[in-house]
C-alpha cells in the first residue's frame, strides 16, 4: 500500500520538516512552513488532509514509555495459520494492553512467526499474565509463540524521511 503517489512535492517537504517534531513556540506551523517553503495556512491544510487520508496516523505528544516507568516492553510473536491470522489480528486489537499489532512476513526456518503484538507494561510478571490471558481468550494456548522483552534502547526517535530530497 504505497500512497506516495498521493503526495505532492510540497507534502514531501512538509513531511521532512515535521521529522524532528514541532518547534515549541507560539506559531509552530509558521516555523514548519518556513522550513518547508510553505505558508502557515498551507501547512495546516496539508496536515489536516494527510490526517484524513490516514497518511498521518496521529499528531500529538509522542511519549517514551520507558521514562514513564513502562520498563517491561515485550514484542510477542505468534505463528498463526495464514487463513486465521486476519481474524486473530482483529481480535487482538480489542485488547487495550496491545499497543501495536501487525502481520509481517515469515522467514522460515529462522523466523516462523507472522503475527506481532506489542505490550508495554510496568512489570514483567504482569506482561506475562497478559500474554496468557490473550492466548486463553483467543484459543491460542497451543499456538507457537515467543516473548521478546527489550533490553537496551540504542536509538529511539521519529523516522527521518529525507534522503537528499529524493522522497
Amino acid at each position: 500500500m504505497e500512497l506516495t503517489g498521493e503526495l505532492t512535492g510540497a507534502d514531501r517537504r512538509l513531511v521532512t520538516a515535521m521529522g524532528p517534531g514541532l518547534p515549541l513556540c507560539r506559531r509552530p506551523f509558521r516555523e514548519i512552513g518556513a522550513r518547508a517553503g510553505l505558508s502557515e495556512k498551507n501547512v495546516i491544510t496539508a496536515l489536516k488532509r494527510m490526517l484524513e487520508a490516514g497518511i498521518i496516523s496521529r499528531l500529538g505528544v509522542v511519549v517514551r514509555h520507558h521514562e514513564l516507568g513502562y520498563k517491561a516492553n515485550a514484542m510477542v510473536v505468534w505463528d498463526i495459520a495464514d487463513e486465521d491470522v486476519d481474524q486473530i489480528g482483529e481480535r487482538f486489537k480489542t485488547f487495550d494492553f496491545i499497543t501495536l499489532c501487525y502481520r509481517r512476513k515469515r522467514r522460515p526456518p529462522q523466523w516462523p512467526y507472522n503475527l506481532f503484538s506489542m505490550i508495554h507494561g510496568r512489570e514483567r510478571q504482569a506482561v506475562l499474565a497478559q500474554v496468557d490471558e490473550l492466548a486463553r481468550a483467543c484459543g491460542l494456548e497451543d499456538a507457537p509463540r515467543e516473548i521478546l522483552f527489550s533490553g537496551r534502547r540504542f536509538k529511539q526517535r521519529g523516522a527521518v524521511y529525507n534522503s537528499g530530497g529524493a522522497l
Binding site: E2, I56, L59, V62, E67, G158, A159
Partner: peptide
C-alpha cells in the same frame, strides 16, 4: 526525555517504505 517530540506519526506504508 519523557516525550520524544510533539509531532506526527506516519502510518506504515503510507509514505516511503519501511521494514522491521
Amino acid at each position: 526525555g519523557i516525550i520524544s517530540r510533539v509531532g506526527a506519526a506516519f502510518a506504515p506504508g503510507g509514505i516511503g517504505a519501511s521494514t522491521l
